[in-house]
Design a protein around this nucleic acid. Structure first.
Lengths: 191, 191
DNA sequence: TCCTCCGGAATGAACGTTCATTCAGTATTA
DNA sequence: TAATACTGAATGAACGTTCATTCCGGAGGA
């Protein structure tokens, strides 16, 4: 009878090792050891390493989406919704640095490119939330009339960069600074 | 008598293979084959793979810096200098997609982190140019009074993101769009 | 001019290591 | 006891690196 939490142990072990040492610095044997299982056991839960890596990614995407939707109300004004989403993204990244590092590794690898191509233009639930927002903003003239990918880059680019710097210890983000950053991002988007 | 262009061949081969397939998808044997040399020959020019990878990086950084400095005049107004630098960064990235991909691989790897740490807060010549700009801007009140890393994230983040999207074919940047993007970045920086 | 010799550049088969994956055997549960 | 979960040593493929050997072109003697 397979203990379902053994799967969790393996995922958790993989998350930490890959976030810290990269895909190639996290051999299956090491993942197994940290998880407290035999090397072969991993293959009872995941067909191979690629599947494990992709499952881990799906898991993290699910959690991030859930976090973004917490307290998100479609009926709020555009700017408020933007502030909510962006603050949530930044907060999630810096309070879950391990998750953030894993997601970065994933996106900057053949896995990530394949994933983006599959989803046609990298549309994830997160990005969809933003796209909806931006489309409304463009229609009502609040937001610059630029292609959706450009708007996404203006919104996400600084967030990801600054989250990375925070995690590497090059800057310390507090509430006030976060507000200033997101407000600056909004300045780049609004007409 | 060592033909100096053999070194070039090896670097060029490594650049293409690593940009396209990543560090781990570019074995030394493959780099040697594409360069038209024996596997052992590489080690006459580079102590090991790590050295080869770092030398390649230095080379690209040098070229990018040269490109940025073309026509750059310190006596120009702040905004003009910002537009010059940002346009140059974006243009360089999208006209040299191979270079861009290599630089991305490098930055998102242990090599890149080590490199940033060495240079204390990732100060490269490129970033120095921006920092000088931003310091002046903050002093004279033109630019928001935010930490230097934050200003860099606001300036670089969108550029890198949109360059990636362009290269992956998710958007096509023309002169007009580039101007709009950089102008939007400026909006996020100016007080 | 031709031949021989020599230094070092170039080579690529071979080596040792690492890794994902397998499987024969053991432990656990029902 | 039967069935299933688990284990970790064994496997073989792939990799970075080495090194005994080959190759090449210029120097020097006749």
């Amino acid at each position: 009878m397979p203990k379902p939490d053994k799967r969790e142990e393996i995922l958790c072990s993989a998350l930490h090792l890959i976030a810290e040492h990269g895909f190639h610095g996290a051999p299956m044997a090491m993942i197994a050891e940290r998880a407290g299982v035999g090397a072969g056991t991993i293959y009872r839960y995941f067909e191979n390493k690629d599947v494990l890596i992709n499952e881990m990614y799906k898991e993290l995407e699910k959690r991030l989406t859930a976090y973004l939707l917490e307290g998100y109300a479609v009926e709020q004004p555009l700017r408020d919704r933007f502030l909510h989403l962006s603050t949530a993204v930044l907060r999630y990244c810096i309070t879950n640095p391990i998750h953030f590092k894993y997601l970065e590794q994933f996106h900057n690898s053949p896995y990530g490119v394949a994933h983006r191509r599959d989803k046609f233009l990298g549309k994830s639930v997160q990005r969809d939330l933003y796209c909806e927002l931006f489309e409304q903003g463009v229609t009502q003239g609040t937001i610059k009339n630029l292609p959706m990918v450009v708007l996404c880059s203006l919104a996400f680019g600084p967030l990801i960069f600054i989250a990375r710097d925070h995690i590497l210890g090059f800057v310390t983000l507090d509430d006030k600074l976060i507000n200033n950053i997101i407000s600056a991002c909004w300045d780049s988007l609004k007409s």
